[in-house]
Write a protein that binds this DNA or RNA. Structure first.
Length: 843
DNA sequence: ATAGGGTTAG
């Protein structure tokens, strides 16, 4: 800053020190400034000297002290700096510590923490007051770590902290969630006999709550000599923020019993968790309390919190009533209303409110509101609205806001195409961890796991400080490994998780269990499950499903029973996992019993998915007619997937009459996807009715449904090699085909005969056999045999279900090569060893 | 007071 500007700035002090000419009090910074408007041109013609007494050194410290007081009060930085400069240049003041302390205070009040610190460090012996001021400055503005550091230095210097020091440094600990430091400071406060001071104990309470140590917080609270509403509110909000609904409500009741009346802050702290718990009855009674006490009158915060609570409890009528009755609404109010409609699946109203917000509310929709509306677009696959919001984001410049951009990215990843999402991702000006995580999981959800791993590699090599791989990222990456059955990648992810201390995160472990199971390593999956510190419902569901796809249904059932004794209630997904496990292991009667128990004992209303499992269970077990009757007795109309399960079973058991009947039902519903066409066509082929099979194929083509090509892949030394049927694109194609020919000679010698009923077309036997030879899984296994070491287990993954001939062929391949081969198809695992497969004879 | 990325089943 030029000194001329400083000269000008010095003018006001004189005025300030004079009696109030304007007869006005200076209450705030803004009034102070408005009373002294800056002149439009730099007042170089009014040099400082004009205001200096004839002998500068004769100005005593008192005058500067008074000027500095004004600087502190009105945050006049430039003026303060000038005084600082003068004090430095005149050694006369060098020993005037109180003046130098004022300099530090001045810098703090002007928000110049670094300058304050420099001045502070120059002082030989700062007073306790100044230590406190400096610690407070860090505790309020950050960096919070500095506050703790300074506190430590204070102790090292031999200064006793007082009742002001503790609250400040504790506030910094809260912000850092630095529990260890907090506990140490608690000890110091105890020793200093200040633990029970109102401010210290309130700060301790707050620190423990922010660090999630509710028990310690409660202990501090109990010992507080006077518990005011503020302390009670702190406790309520602590429980609420940590998701402890029961304790929060209990605390509210206790508070009232001891004569403390909840105020708006209490209500606003409590309501979010009431909404989360969907505790509508409690919510209503809180609402009634608000009406009785009239604390909802014209209070935006209380009303918005009430509205949000009703929205989260899916009680839109009451939410809307509050919304309509509010005379003043802010952005949060509108967003909460939109969020409520979104949660209940009412897109039209959600969008309507959003438009109203822009039109009537004369509000600018901020990043948070847009995140909510974009989530609505994603949930309802409303791509068009999403694009409109994209426009709005571009126009308003909010696209530069990472949160808003990430919401948009996630919308594209969920409802758009992977290409759109990737294009948008590449164009994002700022990317952070969330952006990367969103695109990775988006790719996986759209079936492009390879792309996901590519993005992850980019992410890992990025040097940006905003990008660090966290638990949520890994939860996106691990399923990519599961999809590809890329065990090496999965193991690397596991290593990363261990080395970065993420093993305590249940969701990460759940993803790992799933990954190991889908990569054929049920043993490793179980080890993760057994060693994880805390198992939630998803953990149990995952391990039950894991044994299910390995055909170990009995283990699934016994885990289900263990889940109960571990004190976790099974949910609807648990039963889907359990029933499909029974189905894959042929445990028909057990499955039936659990389906009944689910409704009677566990009071779970079966969803479409449960019926799919049951039809699959009955159908695979050969009880085709029972399956048909089961569908007819369903309480709601069966969808394509339920009939598809039965059709699949008809194919396995070669029941053509029922198959036709079922396919008629499917066509009545209108085919979704291509599955039913393929299954029906294969059913005809399997029973030798090739012309019908061909007709189905033609009908499928005519209606524009393409069959997704069968594809198999295998991971060799960390690289995934993929094959489609008859593939000759692989660089080692010729040796693969040669290997396959060799294998066939040996397999035929052992008794293998091609099962041509699986071939799709009405062609000569020999030609059919030829088509079967080059099914993708056979190519993959030939390649794997060429590449992998002698005794290694081979894992092949296929996107569709394995055909009967390949299933049979794999038994002979395992026998001929004396290997264990695992084949994971769209449905389950097949382990081939010494000429047999662990799965029951469904083919 | 609203709040971006996340695991299981079919």
């Amino acid at each position: 800053m030029l000194s001329s500007t400083c000269c000008y700035n010095l003018i006001p002090y004189r005025t300030l020190l004079l009696p109030r000419r304007h007869g006005a009090q200076f209450h705030t910074k803004s009034t102070a400034r408005s009373l002294f408007p800056r002149p439009s041109r730099p007042p170089v013609h009014r040099p400082l000297k004009q205001f200096q007494p004839p002998q500068f050194a004769a100005v005593d410290g008192n005058a500067y002290t008074k000027i500095l007081d004004s600087c502190i009060r009105f945050k006049l930085l430039e003026d303060g700096k000038e005084i600082h400069r003068r004090i430095i240049s005149h050694r006369y003041f060098a020993g005037n510590y109180s003046l130098l302390e004022k300099i530090v205070q001045m810098y703090i009040s002007c928000g110049e923490i670094e300058s304050a610190r420099l001045a502070f460090d120059d002082l030989p012996q700062p007073s306790v007051f100044l230590w406190n001021a400096m610690i407070r400055a860090y505790a309020w503005n950050g960096p919070f770590g500095r506050a703790v550091e300074l506190y430590q230095r204070m102790l090292d210097t031999g200064i006793e902290p007082n009742k002001f020091t503790f609250p400040f440094v504790l506030k910094a600990c809260s912000a850092l969630e630095a529990l260890a430091d907090g506990i140490l400071i608690h000890e110091h406060a105890k020793k200093a006999g200040l633990e029970l001071d109102v401010y210290v104990s309130t700060a301790l309470l707050d620190m423990y709550l922010k660090c999630g140590c509710l028990e310690d917080a409660h202990e501090v609270f109990c010992r507080m000599p006077q518990k005011d509403v503020v302390a009670w509110n702190a406790l309520v909000s602590g429980y609420a923020l940590n998701g402890r609904y029961q304790e929060a409500v209990h605390c509210l009741l206790q508070m009232q019993r001891t004569g403390n009346i909840p105020n708006p802050s209490t209500i606003v702290a409590l309501l979010p968790i009431v909404g989360q718990a969907k505790a509508l009855i409690q919510g209503k009674s809180i609402h009634a309390f608000c009406i009785r006490r009239r604390i909802d009158k014209d209070d935006v915060l209380v009303n918005t919190a009430l509205l949000d609570m009703y929205g989260k409890s899916e009680c839109l009528v009451l939410a809307r009533r509050i919304f309509d009755s509010m005379s003043f609404r802010n952005e949060v109010t509108w967003s909460a209303m939109i969020g409520g409609y979104t949660l209940c699946g009412r897109m039209a109203e959600a969008l309507q409110i959003f438009r109203m917000m822009l039109r009537e509310g004369s509000l600018f929709a901020g990043p948070t509101s847009l995140a909510i509306i974009l989530r609505a677009c994603a949930n309802f696959s409303d791509f068009e609205s999403g694009r409109l919001i994209h426009n709005y984001l571009v126009k308003s410049g909010l696209l530069l806001h990472v949160t808003a951009a990430n919401s948009l990215l996630s919308m594209y990843a969920k409802v758009g195409t992977v290409e759109d999402a990737i294009r948008f991702f590449d164009e994002m000006s700022v990317k952070d961890t969330v952006s990367y995580s969103a695109i990775i999981s988006g790719c996986v959800k759209n079936g492009n796991a390879e792309e996901a791993l590519d993005v992850f590699r980019d992410m890992a090599s990025s040097s940006s400080p905003c990008i660090d791989i966290d638990a949520a990222t890994m939860i996106g990456v691990i399923p990519a490994c599961s999809h590809l059955a890329a065990l090496q990648h999965g193991k690397c992810s596991h290593a990363y998780i261990i080395s970065h201390g993420l093993t305590s995160d249940s969701s990460v472990c759940n993803a790992l269990i799933d990954m190991y199971a889908k990569c054929g390593r049920i043993d490793a999956a179980r080890r993760v499950f057994d060693t994880m510190p805390k198992r939630d419902t998803v953990s149990w569901n995952t391990i039950i499903a894991a044994y299910g796809i390995h055909g170990l249904g009995d283990e699934s059932v016994s885990l289900f029973l263990k889940m109960e004794s571990a004190g976790l209630a099974p949910d609807d997904v648990t039963f889907i996992c359990l029933l499909s496990a029974c189905s894959h292991s042929g445990l028909v009667s057990k499955g039936k019993r659990w389906f009944l128990a689910m409704q009677e004992t566990y009071k779970i209303v079966p969803r479409m998915e449960h019926f799919i499992c049951m039809v699959d269970l009955l159908g695979r077990g050969g009880l085709l007619n029972e399956g048909y009757g089961f569908i007819e007795r369903m309480p709601f109309e069966a969808d394509v997937r339920v009939w598809g399960a039965l059709l699949g079973a008809c194919r396995i058991h070669k029941n053509i009459e029922l198959g036709e009947e079922v396919s008629r039902m499917i066509h009545k519903l209108g085919p979704e996807g291509t599955g039913s066409f393929v299954v029906l066509s294969n059913l005809y082929s399997a029973t030798g009715r090739f012309s019908e099979a061909a007709q189905v194929r033609i009908a499928q083509k005519a209606k524009g449904y393409a069959k997704s090509p069968g594809c198999s892949w295998v991971e060799i030394a960390g690289v995934v090699h993929a094959f489609v049927g008859g593939d000759r694109s692989h660089p080692q194609s010729s040796s693969i085909y040669r290997k396959l020919e060799e294998l066939f000679v040996e397999m035929r010698r052992l008794g293998y005969r091609a099962d041509t009923s699986c071939a799709l077309h009405d062609v000569e036997e020999e030609e059919k056999e030829h088509a079967l030879v080059y099914h993708s899984e056979k190519l993959a296994v030939a390649f794997a045999l060429l590449q992998s070491g002698d005794r290694q287990t081979i894992l092949i993954t296929k996107n569709l279900r394995v055909c009967g001939d390949c299933h049979n062929a794999f038994k002979y391949i395992a026998l001929a090569t004396n290997r264990t081969i695992t084949l994971r198809d769209a449905n389950r695992f097949h382990h081939f060893k010494e000429g047999v497969c662990n799965c029951r004879d469904f083919w």
